[in-house]
């Protein structure tokens, strides 16, 4: 039992929702026959923590004062859609037609088609700029919401990220919180073999951001940290949370085989993955 201000009920909820994201991701990718399993599995706890605890949201996905969530790593949208359906933003039956002709739900999130998606993405490197703009707009409109921008670690190689980082620090956009899903892999291999990005914490710090490093799968540590940085109104600078994660977290054979950035599980492997997740869930309870 960890020493935490989170109730056991809340911890159970967050862990349950993270596993729900993983199970739904397996189900949806079975429909599409190809998808980004492991990219979702590394950030499932981040999704759960934000949507079921940290973010200020309501039943109305267009509420002007809501906190915003943006995904630089839009290819993990298959893990976001089940949450948005679970929150009641659209009918759960939409999920059953994931990626089929005319479906609002594709490999990347589309704000024009999916209620609850705060900004479309897919072209890596834009999202932090979109979040920067939302913060400028919030100031102009006298609104005080936060924008949480989930970035891939491979995304650190996009120059536009650093243009946005400079802007956010220069304009003291303290309600902007970037979360880097530091799972270590991108399509062509290990991030630091493709183009090295370390020391990442020092980079963000030198760009004028407050930086925290956390275990991205520890829902208690992650949620407490995100609550804390959201509540801090005196920071005077934007905040970057580097979440140390495992690509494919929760599925043993994906954790050890990095080639899973994009793939398809055979029905047998899907079932095996499902059993691995369910047994992990049972073991904790």
């Amino acid at each position: 039992m960890q020493n935490t201000t989170l109730s056991q009920e809340r911890i159970d909820l967050l862990e349950d929702r993270a596993q729900f994201v993983r199970l739904e991701t397996i189900r949806l990718i079975e429909i599409a026959k190809v998808g980004h399993y492991s990219s979702v599995f590394s950030c499932a706890e981040i999704f759960a923590s934000l949507y079921y605890d940290v973010m200020n949201i309501s039943d109305n996905p267009a509420w002007p004062e809501r906190d915003r969530f943006l995904m630089g790593k839009g290819h993990a949208a298959v893990g976001l859609f089940p949450i948005l359906a679970d929150l009641g933003y659209f009918d759960k039956s939409w999920l059953d037609d994931y990626t089929r002709l005319g479906s609002p739900l594709g490999d990347h999130p589309d704000m024009r088609k999916v209620p609850g998606v705060d900004f479309s993405s897919g072209s890596i490197g834009h999202a932090l700029s979109n979040g920067v703009g939302m913060m400028h707009g919030a100031r102009m409109q006298g609104l005080d919401f936060n924008a949480f921008v989930l970035l891939g670690d491979g995304e650190m190689q996009e120059g536009q990220v650093w243009e946005a980082a400079l802007n956010a620090a220069s304009h003291k956009l303290s309600n902007l919180i970037a979360i880097v899903d530091r799972n270590g892999y991108q399509l062509d291999g290990k991030v630091d073999d493709v183009i090295a990005i370390e020391p990442l914490d020092e980079k963000w710090r030198s760009f004028g951001w407050e930086v925290h490093v956390v275990d991205g799968h520890d829902v208690v540590a992650l949620t407490e940290l995100l609550r804390k940085v959201k509540a801090d109104k005196g920071r005077g600078k934007p905040c970057c949370v580097i979440a140390k994660t495992l690509k494919g977290k929760g599925i043993d054979f994906m954790e050890t085989e990095p080639g899973w950035h994009l793939g398809y599980l055979s029905p047998e492997d899907s079932e095996r993955a499902r059993q691995v997740i369910l047994s992990a869930k049972g073991a904790r309870q």
Binding site: F119, M135, G137, M140, E163, A164, S170
Partner: peptide, 28 residues
């Protein structure tokens, strides 16, 4: 001044951010 943003030499960032500004009801 409260409705103006200086982006510096970052045109791509400026365009993406303008779209973000527009989501809040402003016309950038």
């Amino acid at each position: 001044p409260e409705r103006f943003v200086q982006f510096g030499i970052s045109e791509q960032n400026m365009v993406s951010a303008a779209a973000g500004i527009a989501t809040t009801g402003m016309i950038p």
